[in-house]
């Protein structure tokens, strides 16, 4: 599998609405290398080889959508980036630093990587507002008043400020997932990981979550999104990565990928999901 080059990415960039030249330039200024880099990553679950020699580089400000059939290792890939899954071999580098082992430095790294889960995972015993402020107060040591103010503006942005004092169980799935996005953003992350963020939602709630994600992509956030939402992949991604059987089979800009998939696996996958 050839590692994706930053040069290759720029072609795709032009096709995406909302990502300006200024974003790209600002992104390039912080550090020359990619923000997230995986090299020869392997992972087994027992006998199952879920990640096979995965190489992937994600540039600053880039939106990468990972698609593929169930069990292809997409979620594992996503979770490995902030070490919720450990890997057996290979290297993962975030912002120039190899992922540390369990401990305080790993916690620091995780604070810089926002994560949104399929099942929201909002803290059930805390209100929505507390869910959003907890990280900034306890991890970033922000003043509670400041954290609250910023949390409210984030909740405003994702459209659920009026729900701030409710408990997660009192909200709809779509609202919970938007709260979870606000919670992740409150940490001012350098990158956001989305692990099938809309798969547990009723169909009518998928749109409200994707809208928030699309807006985020437009603002230049670095995003790695595992999803089955082809519409989102088409209009928000800079690059689509297709995974099957633990391997990165194919990657290309979204237009190129959906119009002319090269591999048989991708053709087969697309024919199955796009016929309905």
């Amino acid at each position: 599998m050839r590692p994706f080059t930053v040069a290759g990415m720029t072609e795709a960039k032009g096709t995406v609405a909302g990502v300006t030249e200024a974003d790209a330039a600002a992104g390039a200024g912080v550090g020359a290398g990619p923000l997230v880099q995986l090299e020869g990553v392997n992972k087994h679950f027992g006998h199952l080889h879920v990640l096979r020699d995965v190489d992937l580089a994600v540039a600053r400000g880039e939106v990468v959508v990972v698609i593929g059939p169930s069990g292809s290792g997409k979620s594992t890939l996503c979770r490995a980036i902030n070490r919720l899954e450990t890997i057996d071999s290979g290297r993962i580098v975030f912002d120039g630093q190899p992922l540390p082992a369990e401990g305080r430095s790993l916690a620091r790294l995780r604070a810089d990587v926002g994560m949104v889960f399929q099942s929201f995972n909002l803290f059930a015993h805390r209100t929505i507002l507390q869910n959003v402020t907890l990280g900034p107060i306890k991890v970033r040591k922000e003043k509670p008043a400041e954290a609250r103010e910023r949390a409210m503006s984030l909740l405003e942005r994702v459209g659920i400020a009026s729900q701030a004092d409710k408990y997660p169980a009192q909200l709809s799935g779509g609202q919970q997932q938007r709260a979870a996005i606000a919670r992740a953003l409150a940490m001012r992350p350098k990158a956001m990981l989305f692990d099938e963020p809309t798969s547990a939602l009723d169909p009518e709630m998928v749109g409200e979550v994707l809208d928030v994600m699309t807006a985020l992509a437009g603002e230049g956030m670095t995003m790695i999104v595992v999803t089955h939402e082809m519409g989102f992949a088409r209009h928000a991604a800079n690059r689509v990565v297709f995974m099957a059987d633990g391997q990165l089979v194919e990657q290309a800009g979204p237009e190129e990928f959906f119009a002319n998939p090269r591999s048989d696996r991708a053709k087969d996958f697309l024919s199955k999901i796009l016929t309905h």
Partner: peptide
């Protein structure tokens, strides 16, 4: 407690003690 609760807390950068004590 569902594992997702602890995972979400760890993903925010909480230490083991914070994950256990707060969440």
């Amino acid at each position: 407690v569902p594992t997702g609760q602890g995972e979400a807390a760890r993903a925010l950068g909480m230490t083991f003690g914070q994950v256990l004590g707060l969440i």
